[in-house]
Design a protein around this nucleic acid. Structure first.
Ligand SMILES: [Mn+2]
Ligand SMILES: [Mn+2]
Ligand SMILES: [Zn+2]
Ligand SMILES: [Zn+2]
Lengths: 152, 152
DNA sequence: AAGACAATTTAGAATAGTTCTAAAACTTGA
DNA sequence: TCAAGTTTTAGAACTATTCTAAATTGTCTT
C-alpha cells in the first residue's frame, strides 16, 4: 500500500511534500480547501475562500497552485459545456457527473451506474469516454442522484 | 412533410427566410458555409472562410449570424472540454462525437452505436446525456469511426 | 425620387477566464 | 550572512465572445 493510499490520514502539508510540491503557507491553504473542504470549486471559488482564510493570496498563486496540483496528480481540472470556468475535482478515480440544471450544481455519479458501450469498430482506439448527465433533481432537498459516489 | 424536411433541396436564402431570418448577403455567405460546406467549424473558422469569399465581414456579424442560426434552430453550438471555442454543428439530430486526439478532429457518432444507460434512481430526471469519446484513429487516412453518421 | 424609420453591419471597447512577465519577497543551506 | 534559487505578486497580455454606438443599408410611404 502506497504512502498516501489513505490520504485522509495525512496532513495536507504531507500530501504536498510527498507529491513533490513544497508546502508553502499559500499552497497548504489552497490544497486544504480543494482536497478536503470544497466540492468541484472553480478557481474563483478557491480565491474567494482564500480571501476569507488567508491574508492576501494573489490570483496568480491560486492558478499556479491549482495547476501544480493537477500536474502532480492530486486533483483534476475539468471543463463542462455549460460553463466557461474549469472546475477542480479532488476525486481522482474514474467517475461521471450529473448536472442539476436548475441549480447548476454538480454531483458525482458512479460509473457502475452508467453503462457506456461504444461499438465504433476497429478503425479507432478509445482512450476515454466523457459523460455528463443533465437533468434536474426531483427533490432538491436530497443530496443528489441516489448513486452519488461518496467522497474518498 | 414540412417545407424544409429536405433542406438540401432549398437555396440557403430560402432556408433563412423560412426560419425567420432575413437573408442578407453576409448571412447567406455565413449560412452557406456552416450549413453546407464546413464540418464543426469554430467562429474563427467561419470568419477565416468569409475573409476569402466575401468582401469584408466583421467578427460581430459572424457571431451575430451564428447566434441567430442557433436561436432559430438551424444549427447547434457545442462546447467541448478540450477546446475553448464553441463549434457549430449543422446536424440537428441527436448524435455524439469522437475526438481524434492526435489531430484534434471531430467525427460524428451514431447514438445507436453507443449504449448509454444511466440508472440513477428516482430522485432525478434526466433531460440529456452528453457523450464525448476520446481516442485516436488507427488509420488516419480513413474518414473516421466506422459508425460515422453520414451528413443529412 | 425623397424622406423617414427600422434593420443590419461595423470597429472598437468591454468582459471573463486564464496565462504571462518581471520584479519583490521569501527560503535554503553554505 | 549572504548568495542562489524558489515563490509570490501586481498587473499586463491573451482568447473567445458580447456589447456599444455610430455608419450603412433596406423598406415603405409619399
Ligand atoms: Mn462553483
Ligand atoms: Mn475548427
Ligand atoms: Zn467529480
Ligand atoms: Zn456533429
Amino acid at each position: 500500500m502506497s504512502r498516501n493510499k489513505e490520504r485522509g490520514m495525512h496532513k495536507v502539508a504531507e500530501i504536498l511534500r510527498s507529491a513533490g510540491i513544497r508546502p508553502t503557507a499559500q499552497r497548504i491553504a489552497i490544497a486544504q480547501y480543494v482536497l478536503r473542504e470544497a466540492d468541484h470549486p472553480t478557481a474563483e471559488d478557491v480565491k474567494a475562500h482564500l480571501d476569507r482564510v488567508f491574508p492576501m493570496v494573489s490570483t496568480a498563486t491560486v492558478y499556479n497552485t491549482l495547476n501544480a496540483l493537477v500536474e502532480h496528480g492530486l486533483i483534476r481540472a475539468i471543463k463542462f459545456p455549460h460553463a466557461d470556468a474549469a472546475i477542480y475535482d479532488q476525486k481522482m478515480h474514474h467517475h461521471y457527473h450529473f448536472l442539476d440544471e436548475p441549480s447548476g450544481r454538480l454531483y458525482d455519479v458512479d460509473p457502475a451506474d452508467v453503462q457506456v458501450k461504444p461499438q465504433l469498430g476497429a478503425t479507432c482506439e478509445i482512450t476515454e469516454v466523457d459523460v455528463l448527465i443533465r437533468g434536474r433533481l426531483i427533490d432538491p432537498g436530497l443530496s443528489g442522484p441516489s448513486t452519488t459516489v461518496s467522497p474518498t
